[in-house]
């Protein structure tokens, strides 16, 4: 088990109040938005704030790569590894 990925799953569940889900329900490569987990635009904003708080990651609103970073737990983990400060 990859620790950072587990940590991000917990962050998603807690920040987005996914009370009906556990870590096991979120596959690391499942799309978070739209088809897949079914998260919406408010979740994207909420998740952006949580990532900033926990890892110090600043995401520009106009950054075209943001959509790709937010694709799945795997892509978020890659983002945290490349840009994040140690939690």
């Amino acid at each position: 088990m990859n620790t950072l990925e587990q940590e991000i799953k917990t962050l998603i569940i807690e920040a987005l109040n996914l009370e009906h889900m556990s870590q096991e329900d979120i596959a690391s490569d499942i799309p978070l938005f739209g088809e897949g987990l079914g998260l919406d635009s408010i979740d994207a904003l909420e998740l952006g704030i949580a990532l900033k708080k926990k890892y110090g990651i600043e995401l520009g609103a106009g950054d075209s790569r943001t959509r790709e970073h937010f694709r799945s737990v795997l892509s978020l983990a890659a983002l945290v590894r490349s840009q994040g400060k140690a939690a």
Partner: peptide
């Protein structure tokens, strides 16, 4: 602090 979009909406 940053405002929560969920709380706001």
């Amino acid at each position: 602090e940053e405002l929560s979009p969920t709380l706001f909406s």
